[in-house]
């Protein structure tokens, strides 16, 4: 009997889900009759909220930046141990995100947790939901996805206006950059961005960096699409790519830790022309509201150094 009920329950949910999907919206928000809000996150997972959330916790540093950019900061009740931006985030209680400190989460009583795919394992999210805390995932493949993410957060939290105000301004900056650089007729600069030196890992085609470079009329030197967003490559592969610019650490550090170890790579065009630059790690690696700042940093390195 119990099992039958369970099956019935499942069917009901399935029906509800298909109804929601048929409304064909990437980010759905529907108050049901009882006042429950049903959302669908970027991974297509269904999230139910009993009311408009008033207390949120972030489990990813980039998400903390997203939340602080859009929300009333009093609604943010927890952040991760790695967060360092904005300064106001440091005043919030820490929730260790790996391994997750479940008790701390419960202590902070969030109505919803925001996180990013790849940072919070699905197992952890399932456990949090068992404990009664819904988890909302975002994932971004492009700069525009980040802006959409900001707007989604605004909608869920009742801060549409603030979110749109921010994204309008960010989009405008991106469009100006596009107009400035994409119209130019010159050969695009081919940029290789190193994420780890031993073994060598780089930004692959499926990373936001590719889009950031595209906005600036440049391109990711790694054109091949690998399974991983950050593939491991060989010295020979880099010699073949022969990038115009190599991003990683500042020249001195790269000389010591990268080219010192792989002297063969001194034959690359980037090295020969001295085009080795360091980027601000948090700007480069975090998909957040400072993405435009990150693009502007790349612009300075690519065209004004």
């Amino acid at each position: 009997m119990k099992q039958k009920l369970h099956l019935f329950d499942k069917l009901c949910w399935l029906l509800l889900l298909s109804l929601l999907l048929s409304s064909a919206c990437s980010q759905t928000e529907k108050p049901t009759e009882e006042g429950t809000i049903v959302l669908q996150d970027d991974l297509g997972r269904e999230i139910q909220l009993e009311k408009q959330p008033l207390r949120v916790v972030s489990l990813a540093s980039s998400m903390t930046e997203m939340l602080f950019a859009v929300l009333d900061t009093s609604t943010i009740v927890g952040r991760t141990q790695n967060d360092d931006y904005p300064a106001a985030a440091l005043t919030k209680p820490v929730v260790k995100n790996y391994p997750i400190d479940y008790e701390q989460v419960l202590r902070l009583k969030p109505d919803v947790i925001f996180t990013v795919e790849g940072i919070t394992p699905p197992d952890d999210a399932a456990r949090l939901e068992e404990l009664g805390v819904p988890v909302y995932y975002q994932t971004y493949a492009s700069v525009e996805d980040i802006f959409n993410g900001l707007e989604d957060i605004g909608r869920i939290m009742g801060r549409e206006e603030q979110a749109e105000h921010l994204t309008d301004s960010l989009r405008q900056q991106v469009n100006e950059l596009k107009q400035r650089y994409q119209a130019q007729q010159r050969q695009p600069l081919r940029v290789l961005a190193i994420t780890w030196k031993d073994p060598i890992y780089v930004h692959g085609q499926n990373t936001i960096l590719t889009d950031k470079l595209h906005i600036l009329g440049a391109e990711n030197a790694v054109q091949e699409v690998f399974d991983q967003p950050y593939p491991s490559i060989t010295r020979e592969y880099i010699l073949k790519l022969n990038p115009d610019v190599i991003l990683g650490d500042d020249r001195e550090k790269m000389e010591k830790e990268f080219f010192g170890q792989y002297p063969e790579l001194r034959k690359t065009k980037a090295y020969q022309q001295g085009r080795i630059y360091g980027t601000t790690d948090n700007l480069m690696s975090r998909p957040g509201p400072r993405v435009v700042e990150s693009i502007l940093e790349l612009e300075r390195l690519l065209y004004h150094e």
Binding site: W196, D198, P199, Y201, Q261
Partner: peptide
Amino acid sequence: SDSEGKLKSIIFWSMGSFERAS
């Protein structure tokens, strides 16, 4: 470990590779 990169180095140092040959 607080960084994914470090884990990548550990994979190298637990399973081996000849990529660093010179």
